[in-house]
Simulated scan of single mutants.
Amino acid sequence: MCGRFALTASPEQLLELFGLLKVEDFPMRFNIAPTQPILIIVASERAEPGSNLPDRQAMLVRWGFTPGWVKDPRSFPLLINARAETVAEKAAFRAAMRHRRILVPASGFYEWHRPPKGSGEASQAYWVRPKKGGILAFAGLMETWSSADGSEVDTAAVLTTGANKTIRHIHDRMPVVIPPEEFSRWLDCRTQEPRDVADLLAPPPEDYFEAVPVSDKVNKVANSGPDLQDEVAPIASILAKRPPAEREKEDGQLTLF
């Protein structure tokens, strides 16, 4: 899944990568969480023939997808992710997959390795980033929810797929990444139906990402500084070096030796 990510790119970098005319200035964000505003890229109304105006624009939406047919969002589950394997058939996402595909700029995402209960292992947070650095684009969907009083809220979800070998030891899911050369095809909901872009809903190459162990400070949304991405020694290796009595206290398990 994708439950936290970061975007630390400058507006100039976004303008260049996504071919935008303008993007509002915004602070670096190191711990973006569900329900918060996120930056997305959408296909705008195409410019007149011969015009040099770009056909993409940036906007802010709420991270947490709400289908248009929902009457009361407070009683509806928070949909931050959509499974790529079923997104074209699910009632919640079917219309958006056909008509409102988006890109979600990111510098990387956080994932947690959560071992089975009773295993004695500790959870470990990872900062997952492109090996070569730079900005990436998650595949996403957008929906505008309208209330009875006429107010509107733009919402979005990030698509996920089965993890590749680089991430599988941490979690079995990961975000779908759209490469720059496919931005136009993914955003083109006029001529490209879901079946035409299904080939894009695959894990990135094995060497695309690297996973850096980080501290559990990222667990708290209130923590939002660059130190969240500082590499730490994995918890498992630290515990392994401790005397047996300390390890028992740490994991709550008794030892027979």
Score class of each variant (00 low, 15 high):
R100P: 01
G108A: 10
P77M: 07
W186F: 07
A125W: 02
T160M: 03
A9T: 11
D154Y: 00
Y110D: 01
N81R: 03
P213V: 15
L254N: 15
T144K: 00
P175Y: 10
I102Q: 13
A236F: 00
A92I: 12
G140H: 03
V214P: 14
I41C: 08
E181T: 08
K249E: 15
G134I: 04
L15H: 07
L141W: 09
E143D: 07
I80T: 14
I238A: 09
V177K: 08
G162T: 11
G140S: 03
S151D: 13
P116K: 04
A211P: 11
T155Q: 05
L39V: 03
A137W: 08
G118T: 06
T155V: 00
G118N: 11
L228S: 06
L14Y: 12
D251Y: 08
M142T: 00
A58Y: 12
I238M: 10
S44W: 10
S107D: 06
I38S: 05
T255S: 11
E181Y: 04
F18A: 09
I170D: 06
D72I: 01
P27A: 06
G252H: 11
L228P: 09
F138L: 02
R101I: 02
S151N: 12
E231I: 02
E24N: 12
F109R: 14
N81H: 03
L17M: 15
Q229H: 14
V218H: 15
T8F: 03
H169L: 00
T166I: 05
W69T: 01
V197N: 14
S224V: 03
S146V: 02
G150C: 04
E246Y: 13
K131G: 01
P130W: 05
T191N: 09
R195V: 11
I178W: 05
G140V: 00
R101E: 04
H169K: 04
D188V: 01
A92G: 14
A96E: 03
K165M: 00
G225W: 13
V212K: 13
I102R: 12
F5Q: 08
R195E: 15
G68R: 09
K241Y: 06
G162S: 13
L200S: 14
P37A: 05
A88Q: 05
E246R: 14
R242S: 11
A88D: 15
T144W: 03
S10A: 05
S224F: 09
A137H: 07
N164L: 01
P179D: 06
W112E: 08
I178T: 02
R4D: 10
R185D: 09
R185Y: 05
V212F: 05
R56F: 09
L200F: 09
L21D: 14
W186R: 02
